[in-house]
Simulated assay, not measured.
Amino acid sequence: MARYTGPKSKIARKFREPIFGADKALEKKNYPPGQHGPNKRRGKQSEYSIQLMEKQKAKYTYGILEKQFANIFEKANRLKGITGENLLKLCEARLDNVVFRFGIAPTRSAARQLVGHRHIVVNGNVVNIPSYTVKAGDVIEVREKSKSLETITASLASRKNNFDWLEWDNASMKGKFIISPEREQIPENIKEQLIVELYSK
């Protein structure tokens, strides 16, 4: 299972956003990494650089590597509607992201691990592919044998967010993907139009 395994605090500092979750390093040093610290004079970014940064931010946020991200963009481009919005909708429909949104895991990387280790069931069947596309009406639940796992119970105990396009029952550890979210419902700070412009060159 291909995934990003490099330093996360440096990436969060690069974008000045906690894209991997709460990060003390980002709180202490809210400026890009580099040996000259916050006083380094940084040249004006080119249009291409700004677009590339936005694409990288989206990739790191959802934990998707380059080739897979390009494939998702191609799929988004073929769908009806606005390509940028379709791109984010497809990212949101990934099983690892849905598990994270439900609060079963505290981060997307933890959600990816739970899916890969066969702790998640979709419509009664164990699915261990993090990139599996969840469809409207699909029921996602924690596997019976895994309901007592400390990582899952701890994450659900501190669950805060409720999303309009998801329905979750804490008692049965079961949820439903009601419908694909609209752009304004997706909380990620991503300027998807810049990504579309980058791929359109």
Rank of each mutant, 00 (worst) to 15 (best):
Q193K: 13
P18Y: 10
Q35F: 11
K75T: 15
A136K: 11
I50N: 03
N39R: 10
Y132G: 01
P181T: 04
R16N: 14
N77S: 15
Y62R: 09
L26K: 04
V122D: 11
A111D: 06
G175E: 03
N125K: 15
I120H: 12
G116T: 12
K57W: 04
E66G: 00
Q185N: 11
G124H: 10
T83Y: 08
K145Q: 10
E85P: 00
H117Y: 02
R118K: 14
H117P: 01
E27Q: 15
A22V: 13
A105F: 07
N123I: 06
L114I: 02
S155T: 12
E85G: 01
K135V: 09
A110V: 13
G63P: 05
N123D: 15
A105H: 07
S9N: 08
A157L: 13
K135E: 12
N86H: 07
K135F: 07
K147V: 04
A22I: 06
V196K: 14
V196I: 12
P106C: 00
G137I: 07
N161C: 01
S172I: 01
Y132K: 11
S49W: 00
K75A: 08
A2G: 10
Q45W: 04
N189M: 08
D164R: 14
G6Q: 05
I11Q: 11
G103N: 07
E192H: 08
G84Y: 03
R78W: 00
K40F: 14
T107K: 10
A157T: 09
A105P: 03
T133I: 14
P18S: 08
L95G: 05
H117F: 00
R101I: 03
